[in-house]
Each structure stands twice: as C-alpha cells, then as structure tokens.
C-alpha cells in the first residue's frame, strides 16, 4: 500500500471475486463489505437495513457461507468469493428459490428479499452439512430433519417488516426437497 496523503483516511487496494468476477478495488479502509458491493461496485441488490447486524437485509454468501455484509470490512475479504443476489439469478434466469418466492408471494415491499434468499441458500447448505440449531433435538444425529420449526429458527436472523414469514417458509420448503422430508 502506498503512503497515504497527510490527513487522508488510510486506504487499501486488493482483489476480491464477486459473483464469479475478479475485481481489483481501492477503498477507504473503513468501507464495509456491504458498502463495497453497493457503492463501489454498484451492486445495489444487497440491501442496507439496520447496518448493525440486526435485520439480515445485507446477507450475502462469502465462500458459500452466509454472513451480514454490514458487520465486515471489505478488506477482510481479500481473495475471497462473494455471492450476492445478482449472482444468485437475474431475470429471466432466476434461480429455483427466487421463482419460489415469486410463486408463493413471499414478500410485500421486497426490501428484505435479497437477504432472505441469500440467507436461505446458505441455510440449506448448513442443513446439508448437518449443522445443528437450537431446534435440533438430537445433536448426535448425522441428518438434521428440516421441519418448519427448524426453518423458522434458522431464518431468525432475517427480519421481514411486512411479515411475509408464512410465505417465506413455504417458498423455502418448496426448494428444500428431500431435506424437508422431516417436515
């Protein structure tokens, strides 16, 4: 990193892969991953709700794992792979979960939807890996049955102020496939 000019906030230059495309970025070190996506890279599908990790609207996948993009510095993700809602699917090539959200009418205002969808995709992978939640009664079991209670608990980090929760649950159940067999 070159010496910063006097009084200027320190910056960092690094590479990060977003939706499969390697990007070289130069940002103020204070830039969160969320602001990098929205402001620097123009990917405004990821939403800023509370900006404090309480609402889940900014949920993205980093190396396949769901996190709150607002509570992470962009520079912490040098060299990593970020997937946003734009990388999940754009019209007309929507992913099965995006289509399920449309078919189930799983939103009203739509502001939380990108975060809900990225979160659900990460959640289904966690279930495939057998990761437990506080609804998981048998910690020794290799397979976690994806009951409705499990889906609700595992999606509790995503708030929907329009309260489309029943439809979000249905949309996720539609794509969970055999994972939802225990429901």
């Amino acid at each position: 990193m070159a010496d910063p000019p006097v009084r200027a906030a320190p910056r960092a230059t690094f590479q990060i892969t977003v939706n499969g495309e390697a990007r070289r970025v130069d940002v103020d070190l204070r830039t969160t991953l969320l602001d990098l996506l929205r402001e620097t890279l123009g990917l405004s599908g990821t939403k800023k709700g509370c900006d404090h990790g309480q609402c889940g609207a900014c949920t993205v996948l980093v190396d396949g794992v769901r996190i709150n993009a607002c509570l992470s510095l962009a520079v912490m993700h040098e060299g990593q792979q970020v997937t946003t809602i734009e990388g999940v699917g754009l019209p007309p090539d929507l992913s099965p979960l995006q289509r399920a959200f449309l078919e189930r009418d799983a939103f009203q205002c739509g502001y939380c939807t990108p975060g809900q969808i990225c979160s659900a995709l990460g959640m289904l992978e966690e279930v495939r890996r057998g990761e437990p939640s506080q609804e998981t009664l048998d910690l020794a079991a290799e397979i976690v049955p994806l009951t409705d209670a499990e889906i609700r608990e595992r999606m509790s980090g995503n708030i929907c102020r329009c309260s489309a929760y029943p439809q979000i649950l249905e949309a996720i159940r539609d794509v969970a496939g055999p994972l939802g067999a225990g429901a």
């Binding site: 990790g53 769901r66 990460g122 966690e126």
Partner: peptide, 12 residues
C-alpha cells in the same frame, strides 16, 4: 452457542 445471536453472526 446456538442459543446466541443469529446464524449469520455465528458464521462470522
């Protein structure tokens, strides 16, 4: 551990 925070926060 799973009683704390949200899944996204626990991942990070």
């Amino acid at each position: 551990l799973v009683a704390g925070a949200s899944p996204q926060l626990r991942n990070k």
